[in-house]
């Protein structure tokens, strides 16, 4: 390593923040990034990334048979990582946000305004819904039919999952709670094949990823060794490379604020 490289400042870790605590600027950046990728039709765009999950790509990992260790968590961590890079290619300071659907506020009010408002600054809200390529033969746009907020997954259920010691059991129970939320939202989020087209998919999976990151802080080993070098198609990444979010350049925070020394 050269002397210059050794002393070069490391880029700062970026934070995915709680949707309830986003500043107006942070939310605006996220919306701007979503709107930008939704307007791109090539492999930098929203249709490309959303289509990786179910239709047409079919790459998502869910409901594993009992004979294998589940790659549900590392696969979705890689998925969010590459999609977030696509957002940041358009708006460099945009970061995915997470929605804790087990929080008291969620249980009172349901889907947060950031994802539920029809408009933002006079424009259609790109976090409310998204178009789906009609040539795929399915729905042409996402929509939601959420159940009552009181029926969202509970904080008690989440706490019980975080106590589980063994990885595959933890992953299975967390995936079950994750499925509970998909069913709760309904609409395209209620189907594996179309779920990733709904913008709230990303806030949901950021919360799932956050819970895995939290579990990792207090449990070891963090993943069964035999699967560490498994690939996570279509991403150029192995399970091992997903295990430390700080090596992917991010962490989870409630909120962030930043000032520069004048």
């Amino acid at each position: 390593m050269s002397a210059a490289a050794a002393t070069a400042p490391k880029p700062p870790i970026r934070h995915r923040k709680n949707v309830y605590f986003l500043t107006p600027g942070q939310l605006a950046s996220l919306r701007e990034a979503f709107a930008a990728v939704q307007g791109i039709s090539d492999n930098r765009g929203y249709q490309f990334y959303a289509g990786i999950h179910g239709v047409p790509g079919g790459y998502c990992v869910h409901n594993p048979p009992p004979t294998v260790i589940s790659l549900f968590l590392p696969w979705h961590r890689a998925y969010l990582y590459f999609f977030e890079l696509a957002l940041r290619d358009q708006v460099p300071d945009a970061m995915l946000t997470w929605w804790n659907w087990a929080s008291p506020r969620a249980h009172q009010r349901g889907i947060p305004a950031a994802f539920a408002a029809d408009e933002a600054d006079g424009q259609p809200n790109p976090l409310l819904k998204a178009a789906i390529d009609p040539s795929l033969g399915g729905p042409h746009e996402t929509h939601r039919e959420p159940d009552h907020p009181a029926n969202l997954p509970t904080a008690n259920a989440v706490q019980n999952v975080l106590k589980i010691q063994q990885f595959n059991r933890f992953s299975a129970r967390l995936e079950d709670i994750h499925g509970d939320f998909h069913v709760w939202v309904g609409g395209e989020m209620g189907r594996i094949d179309w779920a990733a087209y709904d913008p709230i998919f990303w806030a949901h999976h950021a919360n799932i990823d956050r819970l895995w990151a939290r579990w990792q802080l207090t449990h070891s080993p963090v993943f069964p060794r035999a699967y560490l070098d498994h690939a996570l198609p279509p991403f150029p990444m192995t399970v091992r490379q997903t295990l430390d979010v700080s090596q992917l350049g991010y962490d989870y925070a409630s909120s962030t604020s930043h000032v520069t020394v004048p």
Binding site: N63, H178, G179, V183, G190, I192, D193
Partner: peptide, 12 residues
């Protein structure tokens, strides 16, 4: 208690 099936919605 409950468990949840996150289904594929048929075959495309």
């Amino acid at each position: 208690g409950s468990f949840f099936i996150f289904g594929h919605g048929g075959c495309y």
